[in-house]
Amino acid sequence: MQRSFLSRLTGLAAWFAALLIAFPIIWMLVTAFKTERAAIAVPPLLIFKPVLGSFAAATAQTGYLSFALNSIIVSLGATLFAVIIAFPAAYAMAFRPGRHTQGLLIWMLSTKMLPPVGALVPVYLIYRDVGLLDTRTGLIILNMLMNLPLVIWMLFSFFKDIPAAILEAALVDGVNTRQQMQHLLLPLAAPGIASTALLSIILAWNESFWSINLTAAHAGTLAAFITRFSQPEGLFWAKLSAASVLAVAPVLLFGSLTQRHLVRGLTFGAVK
């Protein structure tokens, strides 16, 4: 009795915490179905007649689809190149470590501590001069570079979980490095590579700083799309919410579908 009461209390607390964390998303979802007038009503309306007008307005004038397409291309492209570069890098670090491998890993991670705004001006000027401003290529390169440390780290730790003797056995058996990567490492680390790629896609999708600052009409992602609704003429809460829902819905859906993979990937090796 005592125990079931306690566990029920814990459950209740967990629900409360979850609701608190999810509240902004839920409120955004609710607001998206309101009219502009209902959206700014004080006290906030909990019961209202849902309308789809904000969605229509948010997509009609703005070319939502082209922003969404940019988001897809940029996040997939950045992830693809990051994994292609990180795979051999992580291989070298996991199976042929040198004297500087550990330091290199730490250094790579430390680059994530630099505030992006510190690099904005130089990157902007370089991009302007080489013609990468407002291009998908430019965004793919930036996102790829930003995710690279994390992708290398994750692949590195997945590779570390593969017994080195398996690759050594293949090596002595005359199997060369490329064949080892293709026929042993790739299939053995496939679940790890998948969860690494998922995380990289989500990070690139959610990236807003560079997307907002380096793109205009042509290569803007959904992050840039949202900012269009907080323009000088004032905030339009319902339209902004509708736009935000449209921007986060794909990745939210994607995330929940692949949740099991993600959690497994992030906790891999932690319990062994």
Partner: peptide, 9 residues
Amino acid sequence: FQSYALYPH
């Protein structure tokens, strides 16, 4: 090898 090092897949 001591651990056999078979290819598990």
